[in-house]
Design a protein around this nucleic acid. Sequence first.
DNA 1: TATACGATCACCT
DNA 2: GGTGATCGTATAC
Length: 197
Amino acid sequence: MGEAETHRRLSLDFYAQETTVVARDLLGRRLVHIFQGQRLAGLICETEAYRGSDDEASHAYRRTGRSEIMYGPAGRAYVYFIYGMHYCLNAVTEQGALPGAVLLRAILPEEGLDLMRAHRGHPPDSRLTDGPGKLCQALAIGGGHNGIDLVTDPGLFIEEGTPVPDASVLVTARIGVRGDHAARERPWRFVWQVEDR
DNA sequence: TATACGATCACCT
DNA sequence: GGTGATCGTATAC
């Protein structure tokens, strides 16, 4: 795969697929935020799928003002505020009436490292972007980005990057899902075993 | 209006 | 292993 392809932006067709397919195929893709004219970017290495109105762990389990975006067109950014201090970034998925989104849980920092370190308060590089709240802080992504169209926006988007083979992908239950319901067991977390790279 | 809690993180023991 | 920070959102009253 050539240079031009790895930097090509993901299309609407990509996001419009079934949510677990999108979550799996987002591994190895490059999340980019152009901040003050500078590229802050990294390869996506951990995701979670939140799919359907019968997924008890999903914000879309209840259709409210906040979750409405998950019922809308694919390719939009869904950014929510949690625990009084953190933002989390999702890509909206699916077509038609089915709500879905993929939570971006971790990236491998690639571009704009110095700015990311400053945004995060200079932790060890290994902990720069290894959580959903951390990657948003590092890339300066916040509530103002909610609803942005990742397919067309000039400042926030995802590039093709490089494919990750199945042998390097770990599939588990989702992190932080509480409650005594089927959602706890669903194998909808996808982790790129980067050491296999 | 009031209350409880969360798709987290950092720091502590 | 445990816990406090801190506030928008959902839901109960």
